[in-house]
Each structure stands twice: as C-alpha cells, then as structure tokens.
Design a binder for these strands. Structure first.
Length: 304
DNA sequence: AGGTGTCAAGCGTCC
DNA sequence: GGACGCTTGACACCT
C-alpha cells in the first residue's frame, strides 16, 4: 500500500499550481507558469520520497488552459526534457501517480459541445502522463457525470462516449463513485458496460451507498482493476466535525483511519488521503500504518 | 502594500 | 429563475 495526498504541499515554499486569468493569457505567461509548476512538482516528489509517501495526485493546473482554444503553444515539446526527467524520477522511486480533472469534465453531458471539451481536457491529462513516459498504472480519475433525469440513459451515454475515447485517454481513465449521484453500485453498472476500473471513494460511499459493507465495497471496486492497471486506487477522507455532511476534515482522525484499515485488511490498494492539511495527515497515516505493522507483526520491531 | 471581487468550464439543490 | 456548493486558493484590479 502506498499512501499519498493530492496536488498541493503546504510544507514547501513553492507552488505547483500557479495559474493566471484567461484574460491575461500570453505565451510567455504560460511558459513561466508551467516552468514554475514543473519545478515545484519536482520538489514535491522529492519531499514525498523523503517522507515515504509514494502516491501523489498531480494538479490539473500544471499547464493552465492546456485544453482551451487560447492555448496553441506546443508545451509538450517545449518542456519534454523536464517531463522526461520527472518521469525518470517517478519510475526510479516507484511512485504511483494520478490526476483528477475537475467537475467540468462530463463525458455523459447531453450537450455535445460539453462532451467535446471534456474529451480535450482528458487528452491534456493523458498528454502530461505520456510526456512523463509513465505506464498505464498512472491513472486519470473522473466522476460519471450528471443524471439529467434518467440514470440509465446517462450511463448509456457515458458508455457510448467511453467507447470512442482516444486510446491514450481510455487506457488511463477510471471512474470514482460520488456522494450524490453515482454510487458504487451505479459505477459497477458503468463498469459492466465499459470495463472501466472503479476508484473507490470510501468517504463518498459513506454518504451514498446500498448498505454494502466497507470490505464488500473495496472488494467489488478492486475486482474491476486488471493486470497492468496497477493496484486499485482508493480515496479516503473523514467528515469535518460539525460541518455539512461531505465536508472534508481539516486533519486526519487517526481512530477512524485505524478502523478503516482494520475493516479493509486483506485488501491491498494505494490510498489517497483527501484531507485539508494534505501532506501532514498523510505522514501521520503512514506512521500509524507502521505502528499497526509492528503491532501485528512483532518480529518487525526487532529490525528497527 | 493591502483589501477584495472575481475567476474557463456544469451539475444538482435549495430558495 | 437565480444563488450556491463542489474544492479553496489566489489572480488582478482597486484604493
């Protein structure tokens, strides 16, 4: 199991998601932002290796406006040496990488223009991972999309679009259960039509489910991943106390985390912690896992 | 320099 | 029919 956090590291002085307003787009502005973002990405990856955090989600802001018509700059060529270097670093240290386009990416939209833009956005994400020369274990996760009043039709539209996705996108795409519209059970229907692997979000599942136990759910989602896809990916978070249901906690609740680990024992996966303080909670989780390992396998204690 | 309104994209919910 | 949350930061303009 590799542990990770998404996109931003608050312990480092750099920022890996620098962007700017569309109105102030220029080629030099873009080059400047991407160079800075790639440099910071390198620092974050180094930090992660140093801290034993081997799973990381790369920010979609890495290349601002990459899929927008305003961007005609051949950024994959221009930055190829830097992408290749990052890729070598990732492979050398066995890091697992994901990306997560935001809520505007809707493959099952009823408006063809939205679908077209969504595919362009996914192609951008695939191009980043391809430029790093990462294999198909590096994944792009999205939600199934909107329901538009008819979930069966919405799933059929998703499957139809999935079938005609460019290969560089399809080989990396995974779907994630959300907390309002498409439950794990719904994602399994999508999987039955398409074969797309399911990234299980344990927190969303708490808010929208069919009473499957955690172990059942993890097993069902895990079974949708094939050889070559890498270990199943999981997202985990916990509820911010007193806040709107679904709000992510500020920092990790280690009791809850230990119960989650215990409930899913026997299943292996790479775990993304979606908690606001990012790398701090990821480090605590990693330490807790090591404590658990010592507890359950006392021989390890003598080695340390 | 500091304060603040606003930012590419869309869904569903609530009023 | 319009504001809001999603995720929450930070750009960019104003004073």
């Amino acid at each position: 199991m590799k542990i990770g956090y998404p996109c931003i590291n608050r312990s480092l002085p750099c920022r890996g998601n620098r962007t700017f307003r569309l109105a102030s787009y220029s080629e030099s502005r873009l080059k400047e932002a991407v160079a800075e973002n790639l440099d910071c990405l390198r620092q974050m990856l180094q930090y992660n290796v140093d801290q034993g955090l081997f799973f990381f989600r790369i920010s979609s802001d890495l290349v601002p406006f990459a899929s927008h018509p305003v961007c005609q700059f051949p950024w994959p060529d221009h930055f190829q040496p830097l992408f290749a270097e990052l890729g070598r670093f990732i492979r050398r240290h066995g890091l697992r990488i994901s990306m997560h386009p935001d809520q505007f990416t809707l493959l099952n939209a009823t408006d063809p223009a939205i679908v077209r833009r969504s595919i362009l956005e996914l192609e951008y994400h695939a191009r980043v991972l391809d430029a790093m020369e990462l294999n198909a274990t590096a994944r792009i996760q999205i939600h199934v999309g909107g329901v538009y009043g008819d979930k069966t039709a919405a799933i059929a539209r998703f499957a139809e679009v999935y079938g005609r996705l460019p290969e560089p996108v399809r080989r990396r795409l995974v779907i994630e259960n959300d907390e309002r519209l498409f439950s794990l059970a719904d994602c399994l229907r999508v999987h039955a039509h398409t074969g797309v692997p399911i990234l299980f979000d344990a927190f969303h599942h708490e808010l929208l489910n069919r009473s499957e136990s955690l172990a059942e759910a993890v097993a069902a989602a895990g079974a949708t991943w094939r050889c070559g896809d890498g270990l199943p990916m999981l997202d985990w978070s916990s509820q911010k106390p007193g806040a709107r249901p679904g709000a992510h906690a500020e920092s990790i609740d280690l009791d809850r985390f230990s119960r989650f680990i215990a409930a899913t024992s026997g299943h292996d996966f790479d775990l993304m912690l979606e908690i606001k303080d990012k790398e701090q909670s990821a480090r605590l989780a990693r330490a807790a896992l090591e404590d658990d390992a010592r507890l359950f396998r006392p021989t390890l204690r003598e080695e340390h």
